[in-house]
Design a protein around this nucleic acid. Sequence first.
DNA 1: ACCTGAACACCGTTCAAGT
DNA 2: ACCTGAACACCGTTCAAGT
Lengths: 196, 196
Amino acid sequence: MPYHHGDLRRALLAAGLSLLEKRGPAQVSLREVARVAGVSHNAPYRHFDSREALLAALAADGFEALGVAMEQAAEGRTGFERLRALGIAYIAFARAQPAVYLLMFGPELVKDPFPALKAVAERSFEVLRQAIETIVPVETRRAAVIGAWALVHGLSHLIADHQFPPDFAEEDKLDALIEDVLAIYRQGLARGAEPH
Amino acid sequence: MPYHHGDLRRALLAAGLSLLEKRGPAQVSLREVARVAGVSHNAPYRHFDSREALLAALAADGFEALGVAMEQAAEGRTGFERLRALGIAYIAFARAQPAVYLLMFGPELVKDPFPALKAVAERSFEVLRQAIETIVPVETRRAAVIGAWALVHGLSHLIADHQFPPDFAEEDKLDALIEDVLAIYRQGLARGAEPH
DNA sequence: ACCTGAACACCGTTCAAGT
DNA sequence: ACCTGAACACCGTTCAAGT
């Protein structure tokens, strides 16, 4: 009597995550996931309406984890130091879970039919918005938030998609590069905040 | 006698592009592409080794077009003005061809088996690298290039994936936002270039 | 060279049925 | 409630055959 009271759902998600990481989103099939979990090809429909719904659940878990990581990074820090910690935490998530990150921000999952996804995604944005609010004057605030998000997202996405030159394969070098890039943007914000 | 001497290849790519834009990369099937082009489900194999090879060809065309657009943007401009033009041109490409852009930088296409893809992609990077070279001191050059790429890529990707708040749906507002964001990064570069 | 039709092993999804 | 097996309409890919 395997998978009573809801364990199957977790087992299916675990199998889906494993497939996603090992073989990419296109290879996540409900039938394969069922096979890995040891149930019939049809059992997953008790927990997910469709293949897309399972992918959406994996992405939602990712947004949830990202939101938590960012809230923790923000806690107990202020000003530019908080902003830096948020950037590092965001990118760290993408480095730790590249496949999930690419799913969260990729076209293989059409997000419109899953409004819960959007809501969870907005939490991370909100944390970033508040951090920027305290260090940038009102006029440039919107561009500052969008720019900060775009910068960390761009770094994260390029890293997850292996688009960087091979000299950054070593973790330490990548760490240093990320710090330098964030510093450039921070200086741009600081200068914009100065009177001119 | 339709599709003699190589026209079929173009017709298949056109059908693939149309499917990609209308229904996403997962819906681009060789059989559907063949149907649209009016040939048997097997005819595409004369021109593409696999479904992935057709997607790779669409992505390669995208990188090619992006490279050309960036070279044109760089031409006749220097310094920060050239850098700005490159950023705008890069983002303009993503706005004009969001589906292709997402394919170029997404996981539904595993790029390793298509080395030609990587080569074409590096052309755009090279144009950016040269533009940065003329305005930033050697020490911070690497971070400046990666950061510039990450920033425009992040903006492009978030726009293509519809992740921005709805107030930027209007083209003009989005144009202004992009200019402001690029300006922040430019100021960061300028400050980094100053003696301190 | 380029195209076709049959075939195979996969999918997602639905349905009727079992406990 | 949760699971199963049969069924349907799709895929990608291969093969033997036609012009």
